[in-house]
Design a binder for these strands. Structure first.
Ligand code: ZN
Ligand code: ZN
Ligand code: ZN
Ligand code: ZN
Lengths: 156, 156
DNA sequence: ACGCACTTGTTATATCGTAACGGTCACGCT
DNA sequence: AGCGTGACCGTTACGATATAACAAGTGCGT
């Protein structure tokens, strides 16, 4: 079952993710400030990946700063703590769908049309190093979700 | 053995890749024009990933056009035919290290310092939700190569 | 010669991301 | 109270990556 493309209790997604965020920050003595919390809430509205400038526009409309670093800083904060992920293939950000795991890697299934992103537990450890120190993995499958193949670009 | 990080006969890399490019184009009735060929040769100078603007600067210095579409079009041509790959994690391009395979997917091991890229055969297909039509996979491992861990940023 | 597909070039603009600096506020210390 | 200090947030300014739209040249079959 992949949250992004199946019916599910999304209110629970939001609730759990926010609770996990509070927990992660508390545990590490860091602050989930209003800006950071609101940024996470915006990402959590759906499983659709948002560009940094989309997030920024939302933040600015709510009285936060209107310049790029405002959004990027909050997004980086979330990404570093595993509360959100950057989807390289879209140059966009999604809320983490498996909160409470601490910083972690994951594989993503990404619809290039509706930009919904399903997060799967990171697959098999990809390529073999050889004296190579792997720091980060990017595993993404891009394509069309069932809804976008049928109805051509459903609302997420 | 991964070409990018081990000693090897790189002249053979270049030679084979160019021969493969000729073959692929001939077979498909397409033209490996001077611009496209030179673009491939530039990528083939090493296993280092180059940004589109790096390639563009090289092309411009040799009398080709100096505007971004010149480089992007040639790069897209090569990527679509599997003669080069885009490394998402770097937003950059490398020549394909396994020419003669036709268009294909691959996994990459990428040094974030020297930007060398080793191409491995694509790993196991990642999991996907029901009804999802995968069109493209991105599998990359980023980190530091042996040389960059020791000597801090060797020349590629 | 003519039409046509393709290639290359241009201008202009969109999109994504960061460096650098200043202001504010909370907190701990003297 | 007065004073660092550090985290956070805001700004300006810029850099890097990518595409849209259009014009002009090339090669080729008819
Ligand atoms: Zn959900
Ligand atoms: Zn979709
Ligand atoms: Zn080589
Ligand atoms: Zn390296």
């Amino acid at each position: 079952m992949s949250l992004a493309f199946d019916r599910h209790d999304h209110a629970a997604c939001r609730r759990d993710a926010l609770a996990a965020a509070e927990a992660v920050c508390a545990e590490r003595g860091e602050r989930l400030t209003p800006l950071r919390r609101r940024t996470l809430e915006i990402l959590l509205e759906s499983h659709v990946a948002l560009g940094a400038y989309d997030v920024l526009a939302r933040l600015a409309a709510e009285g936060f700063g209107s310049q790029p670093p405002v959004a990027y800083r909050a997004l980086h904060f979330l990404v570093e703590r595993g509360l959100a992920h950057r989807v390289e293939g879209l140059q966009a950000f999604v809320a983490c769908a498996r909160p409470g795991a601490g910083p972690h890697e994951a594989a993503f299934v990404v619809c290039r049309l509706c930009r919904r992103v399903a997060e799967e537990p990171a697959g098999a450890p990809p390529p073999r190093p050889d004296g190579f120190a792997v720091e980060r993995r990017v595993v993404e499958a891009q394509g069309l979700c069932a809804a976008c193949r049928d109805g051509a670009g459903e609302a997420p």
